[in-house]
Design a protein around this nucleic acid. Structure first.
Lengths: 185, 185, 185, 185
DNA sequence: GATGAATGAGAGTTCATTCAT
DNA sequence: TATGAATGAACTCTCATTCAT
C-alpha cells in the first residue's frame, strides 16, 4: 500500500504539480481514504521527501558503479550521459518531480537532498577533472562549468524528450555525447 | 500600479512558486488590498499569462534582430547563446517563472505561449540548418536535437547560475559557445 | 440616464434576481461606469425601492379609475382582472421584480411598499364586499379570502404566462373572470 | 448531520433567500464549521437541488395516491387542493424555497426539476380533462389554463397564508374548492 | 490497517460603496 | 455629469491534518 501511494503520487505530482495535487486526489485514484494516507505518511511533505530520496539515492548508486569502473574518463562520461537519458524512459515522472518540486521540502529535508544532488554533480566534475589530468579532455576546460552544461543538456531532456517517440533514448545519448565531446563545428 | 503588481508578482512567483503565492501575498507587499488587484487583473491566471507573454515576446523580438543580421550562422548562434545567458542577469526571475509555471495557464493561453516558444526553437533550428548548408557546421548534425541541446545548456542555467557570483554572464556565454562549437575533447 | 438605469435594471433583476445582479452588470450594459450609478442613486436598495414604488403607484392609480367608475361591482372586478393580466404584457418584468424582490428592501421601505400593496388588496376586497351587499355575489363569501384567491390566480400568471404565446392576454383575462364568477362545475 | 444541514438551510433560505444565505450562516446555526458542510454537500447548489428534489418527489408521490383513488374527478381535485394547502402547514418553508429559488439551480438540475413540476401540472390537467369527459365539469373549459389557475390560487397561498392564524388550512381548502367549483356569482 | 467525520485556516474572487478629480 | 482607482468585507470552496472507532 505504502508503495502504491508513492507511485500514484509521483504520477500525479508530475501531471499537476505538488501544490495542485491534494491528498484527496491521491487517495481517490487508489480507492482508499485519507486516513489511510496518514497511516503510512506523517505528512504530504514527508511523501515528497520519500520520492526525492529514492530518486537521488538510486542515481548516486548507479553513478558509483560507473565511477568505480576500470574505464577511461571519456568512457565514464559517456556512460553517465547514457544513464541520465535512459533514465527518462524508466523513471521519467520521478525525475520531473525531482527537478521541479524540491522547493516544497522543508528546510532540513531540502538541505539533505541538496547535499546529495551536489554530490552527484561533484562526482561528475571530478571525472572531468580527472579526464583533463589524463589528457583525455582539453586542459583549459573549467570542470565546474562543464559539469553544469552537461547536466543542462541531459536534465533539460525531461522537458521535451519522449522516449517512445521517433528518437530512441540510446540514439539521443549518443548524439549528446558526440556533441559534448566534439562540438558542432 | 498594474506594472507594480506585475513586477512584485514575478519576484514572488520566482521565490515561492505560482501556486504557493497568494493574492494576499502580492498585495501585502505593495500595501494595497485585494480589490486593487482585481481592478487590474481579472484573475491570477491572467497575471501569469501577462508575465509569460511579455517575456517570450521580448525574447522573440531580440531573436529577430539577431536573425536579420548580416552575419555568419556561427556568429548568430554565438549571439543567441549570449542573449539567453545575459538575460538571466536582466530578467532572471521572469525567466524562471516562464520556465516553471506554464502548467498553470489555462488551455487556450498555454497553447498560445507554446506556439511562441516553439517559434523561438524553430528559429534556432533554422540557423543551425542554414549553418550546415553553408558548411559552417558539421553536415551530419541533426538540427532539431542540437537545438534542444543548446536550449538545455542555456535554460538550465536559470537553475544555478548567479550572475553576480564569481563567473560573469559574458564569460559563461563564451565558455558555452566554445563547448558547443568545439566540444571538450 | 436615471431612467435608462432603472429600465435596464428591471430587466436584469428579472432575469438574474436582485442579489445576483451587480452594479457592474447594470452599468456595463449601459456602457457607463459605477460612478455614474451612484450619481443617480444613493444605493442599490434605493434603486429597488424606486422600481417598487413606480410599479405599485401606477397600479393603484389605475385601480382608482376602475373603482370610481359608475359600473356594477361585477364589471369592476372583471376590469381589475383584465388590468392585472394585461399588465404582464406591458410591465411584465417590473411585476416579476415587484413580486419577488421585496425582501431586499430595508425595513422602512418594505413597510411603505407593504402598505400600498395592502391598500390594493383592501380595495379589491371592498369591491367584493360591496358586490355581496348588492346581491351581485353570493352572500356567504368571505371577501378577504376571495381577494387572496383572485390575486393568486392573476399574480401567479407572472410565473408562466407569455403574452406573445398562443393565448392572448385578453383571452386569458376572460377565461379567468369566467372561472371566478362561475366556477368549473 | 446531513439532514440537520438541510433542514436548517431550508429555514434560512426561506427567511433570507438562497443568495443572501451564506454557508457561514448555515453552519453557524448548527455550531459546526464550513468544512463539515462541504463534507456532506459538494456545493451550495447541490444542497438546493437536494431540497428541490425532496419536495417535488414527495408531492408527486402523494399526487399519485390521489390519482389512483377510485373517486370521481371532482373529489380527486378537491383532495389535491387540500393536499396543497395543508402542505403549507407541514412543509411551508420547503415550498417557499421551491417556488422562489429554482433560478439558482444549474441548467441540468433546473431541467430535471422543471420536468417534475410539469409532470405534476400535467397530472392535474389530466384530472380536469377526465372530469370534462365524464360530465363532471363544464365541457367548454380549457384544462391547461384551468390547471394554471388552480395552481395560482394554491401556490400563491405560500405568500400570505399563515396556518396558525385565524383561518385553518382545512377551512381554506374548502373555501378554495368551493370557489373553483362554483365561482362567486 | 483503515475509516469517516470534523476542523480551521486560507485560497481566489466578487461586490457595494467611496471619493478625488 | 461622469470617471476610475481603491477599499474592505464577505463569499464559495479547498485542503492538510486529526482522531475516535
Amino acid at each position: 500500500m505504502k508503495n502504491d501511494i508513492k507511485q500514484k503520487s509521483i504520477l500525479l505530482f508530475e501531471k499537476k504539480g505538488f501544490s495542485d495535487t491534494s491528498i484527496q486526489d491521491i487517495v481517490e485514484t487508489l480507492g482508499v481514504t485519507k486516513g489511510t494516507f496518514y497511516y503510512y505518511f506523517t505528512s504530504k511533505e514527508q511523501l515528497l521527501m520519500d520520492i526525492h530520496v529514492s530518486y537521488i539515492d538510486d542515481l548516486l548508486e548507479r553513478q558509483e558503479t560507473v565511477r568505480l569502473n576500470q574505464l577511461s574518463n571519456r568512457k565514464k562520461l559517456e556512460e553517465l550521459i547514457a544513464l541520465l537519458i535512459i533514465d527518462i524512459a524508466n523513471h521519467g515522472p520521478s525525475g520531473k518531480v525531482f527537478f521541479r518540486e524540491m522547493r516544497h521540502l522543508c528546510e532540513d529535508n531540502a538541505r539533505e537532498v541538496k547535499r546529495k544532488r551536489e554530490k552527484f554533480r561533484k562526482n561528475l566534475e571530478a571525472i572531468i577533472s580527472e579526464g583533463i589530468a589524463q589528457n583525455e579532455f582539453k586542459k583549459e576546460l573549467e570542470p565546474g562549468i562543464i559539469a553544469f552544461a552537461i547536466l543542462g543538456v541531459t536534465n533539460w531532456s525531461y522537458q521535451w524528450f519522449n522516449p517512445s517517440g521517433e528518437i530512441s533514448a540510446d540514439r539521443l545519448a549518443r548524439v549528446y555525447s558526440d556533441l559534448i565531446f566534439n562540438g558542432i563545428v
